[in-house]
Design a protein around this nucleic acid. Structure first.
Lengths: 173, 173
DNA sequence: TGAATATAGTTAGGAAGCTAACTAATGATT
DNA sequence: AATCATTAGTTAGCTTCCTAACTATATTCA
């Protein structure tokens, strides 16, 4: 690989999809901004996503909690990761885990009283926080961003699913 | 916290900034789609970001490599994380680390010959891959997304900086 | 019914991110 | 010049995410 070759490649290099780079940059920055915010309540962003899902389940009258796998599906996070997060939430007493009566394999996860209290406490300020994060964009721009990200997200899910089914049917390679 | 109170809160709950949720969803999905792609070359997405930064440095004629701290700044990743990623890249022989002559504290990181080869190999297919990921959006939509994310990103950087300087000047609390 | 298959969850092991606390070297101040 | 402060990088220890491999329970179907 000669120096001249490298140079000419460099010269012909296109800006490499800036939208893609912007996405990656925003991902990192958003984490950095949100993590300290949740830390004030003694939880992390992923723990909040679990608490939120459990709260939503309660509102849908799923009184006995939801299965770990359901959590995994809703949060788009693999089961082993959910196991870990629920472990820590259980350790801090915000969540409880109990075997399902109808299926001995399944564990029903739900909020404890303390967990429910915390959800309400966070909720009280959460919307304002999210708004302050999105404050750089006008209302219609937020909608536009939402629209574009949803379309992109759907596409990514397709890519993901088709990759998975390929791996499943064809074996490896 | 009575049940009725919880219910009424639930009822009055606004959709909670959908743009924000879309961002989080897209973040996770993008990682899942890109990680296996880089895995085919035996590297991870963050390793690629380091290799890419080093390659760019070479093109700017920074021949002796760049300092670990420069990498940290460019990638928006804290120094300890860069240390780890560079460790692994060094172990696989894609990168080398050497003390700077002018500043004994600094380590100059740069591509090895093998590393440079890999960068060129990845480059050959990278643009197409990114395009296939963004294929859900038309060209002008990609530009629009880029524009919105950049504005959001700048805002997040401000939030971050001001939080940091607050912590610095006021001490804690 | 009994064997094969599928599903729920966990464990093991690894990468990446973070903060806090440390070492070593440089720079500034008196 | 000697001390004090700052900067570069690493280490320690934590969380989150992943895949692969495992255990235990359900389900299918022959």
């Amino acid at each position: 690989m000669s120096v001249t070759k490298a140079r000419s490649q460099a010269r012909s290099e296109k800006p490499v999809e800036p939208a893609y780079r912007a996405l990656i940059r925003t991902m990192g920055l958003l984490r950095r901004v949100m993590e300290p915010y949740f830390a004030k309540y003694g939880i992390s962003a992923s723990q909040w996503s679990v608490l939120r899902a459990l709260n939503r389940a309660e509102q849908e009258d799923r009184l006995k909690g939801i299965r770990l796998t359901d959590l995994s599906d809703r949060l788009l996070v693999r089961p082993p990761s959910v196991t870990g997060t629920v472990d820590r939430l259980e350790r801090t007493g915000l969540v409880s885990r109990a075997a399902s009566r109808t299926d001995q394999r399944a564990k029903m996860v739900r909020l404890t009283f303390t967990g429910r209290q915390l959800v309400h406490r966070v909720r009280a300020s959460h919307a304002a926080r999210v708004q302050s994060v999105l404050a750089a964009l006008r209302r219609d721009e937020q909608r536009q961003l939402h629209y574009l990200l949803d379309r992109l997200g759907d596409h990514l899910e397709e890519l993901n699913d088709s990759a998975n089914s390929r791996a499943h049917h064809n074996g490896h390679k």
